[in-house]
Amino acid sequence: MFVLAACGQRASPEQEKAAIAAFATVEKVFQHPRCSNCHIPGDQPLQFDHQSPHAMGVVRGPDGHGAPGLPCSACHGEKNLPASYGPNAPPGAPHWGLPPPDHRMAWIGLPAAQLCGMIKDKKRNGNRDFAALVKHVSEDKLVLWGWDPGGTRAPVPVPHDQFVAAFKTWADAGGPCPG
């Protein structure tokens, strides 16, 4: 089966095979707690590497930035707090929050093919085409936080440049899905 590459031409069988292999790296990153703690099916984010429900009754809210009166920014600043605040101090990055309710992008435990379909579905991904998706994963400061989470949090295990390269390989082939 051929898929359309990002440039509108058909991906070669070799390009499609490389893209599907690259998607395994994308999946590994997306399923890591640094990403999946906020890409949740419900409205209560998860926290820590063991993915426990967020303390203090924190919820997504109407725009993804917390409930009225308790926005994410009440605890999460624009950057991580100094190490002197302790290992479990609230982390920080610009525009801390969850995806909005109408684009939850909830993928915890999804099989690779379903995750793949969700990522490239503009109706579910905030109307992002492949170029916007690549920009999001390569430049967004909240996404980048996953590789420098502070405290005792484990960073995403795949180096960011390798992840972006894998994501581009997948996107440039038109986003073929495994299975």
Rank of each mutant, 00 (worst) to 15 (best):
L70T: 11
P99F: 00
P94N: 01
P41L: 08
V58H: 02
P91M: 06
G77F: 04
P87F: 05
P41M: 10
A112F: 08
M56G: 14
G86Y: 04
A113G: 06
Q51N: 13
P101V: 00
H95K: 02
G77M: 04
P53M: 10
I40A: 05
H50G: 09
A93P: 06
H76R: 06
C116F: 07
E78F: 13
C75D: 04
P90H: 04
G109I: 03
P111H: 09
P87S: 14
G97F: 03
M105S: 11
S84M: 08
M118D: 11
L110R: 09
I119F: 03
P87D: 14
L81P: 06
H65I: 08
W107T: 03
G117Y: 05
Y85A: 14
P82I: 01
P111E: 10
P100G: 09
Y85I: 01
A55H: 14
K120W: 12
M56H: 15
A89R: 08
A93L: 07
M56F: 10
S84F: 10
P111F: 00
H76L: 06
P62G: 08
I108M: 12
L70K: 13
H50E: 15
P53V: 08
I40L: 06
A106G: 12
M105Y: 05
P90K: 05
G66Q: 05
P90I: 00
D63L: 14
P91R: 11
L46K: 15
I40N: 01
Y85W: 11
G86I: 01
P100F: 00
L70R: 11
P45M: 03
Q47E: 14
F48D: 11
S52Y: 04
P99A: 00
H76C: 02
A67C: 09
P100T: 00
P99M: 00
P99S: 01
A113H: 12
G109T: 01
P41A: 14
P53Y: 13
L70W: 07
P99W: 00
M56D: 15
P100I: 00
A74E: 10
P91Q: 11
G92A: 08
P41N: 06
D63M: 12
P111L: 01
